[in-house]
């Protein structure tokens, strides 16, 4: 009521974004008013095209503007390894590392009966179909190390194990460059559990 309608609409829109409260929304809205018109137009277009042009890759479920996605089309990648992650952001994180040259599979969530999310509500059936058709030798389960992520990993491994495909789970433990003394007890005990011979 204090603002003219166009700007109060803009403030409302910013509030819908995660991590943005009413004060930040006001600050951002006023910043937009002072931006060059071209920049504002680009910004608006970017928002719309991100929404309109991106879909989920039919093979791996990653976000993409072409189907199948760039990673699935890339012939130089290793078909024998699939890394299973919960979120498209996890694929980006893995890709930044530039160490992994296999394929991905994005689940878009984790199993949580409490929230009504069963195995069929996340991208598991598509994964099982992929495993039937493709020549996969190893499945890396890189779901998050919490209750739901762990349950999802265990569930997939139960289903896939009979097929003889090698199943691995990413390691949990100490962050690199950190100090042992600052690690919490739980992480430390996980790190101890997952120790290996040198």
């Amino acid at each position: 009521m204090y603002y003219p309608e166009p700007i109060s609409k803009l403030i409302d829109s910013f509030t819908k974004l995660p991590g943005i409260g009413p004060k930040t929304a006001v600050r951002l809205a006023f910043f937009v008013l002072n931006m060059k018109e071209d920049d504002v137009l680009d910004f608006a277009k970017a928002l719309v095209s991100a929404k309109r042009e991106l879909t989920h890759c039919n093979v791996c479920g990653h976000i993409t503007d072409q189907d199948p996605c760039v990673i699935c089309q890339d012939q130089s990648r290793d078909d024998s390894v699939i890394c299973v992650v919960q979120d498209p952001k996890d694929v980006i994180a893995m890709e930044k590392m530039r160490e992994f040259n296999g394929r991905y599979h994005v689940l878009h969530g984790a199993i949580s009966p409490m929230d009504g999310i069963g195995p069929d509500d996340i991208n598991v059936p598509a994964l099982l179909n992929r495993l039937k058709d493709e020549q996969v030798e190893e499945l890396i389960l890189a779901t998050n190390p919490n209750v739901e992520g762990e349950a999802t990993a265990m569930y997939i491994s139960r289903l896939v194990k009979p097929s003889g495909i090698k199943i691995t789970r990413i390691a949990h433990g100490l962050p690199m460059g950190g100090d042992l003394e600052y690690a919490d007890e739980v992480t430390l005990s996980k790190a101890l559990e997952g120790r290996r011979e040198l």
């Binding site: 199993i111 009966p113 069963g118 195995p119 209750v147 349950a151 265990m154 569930y155 139960r158 289903l159």
Partner: peptide, 14 residues
Amino acid sequence: KQHDLTLLSVLTEQ
């Protein structure tokens, strides 16, 4: 509403 016993056994193990 659900019939997935594999999921049950996963949660049991956890």
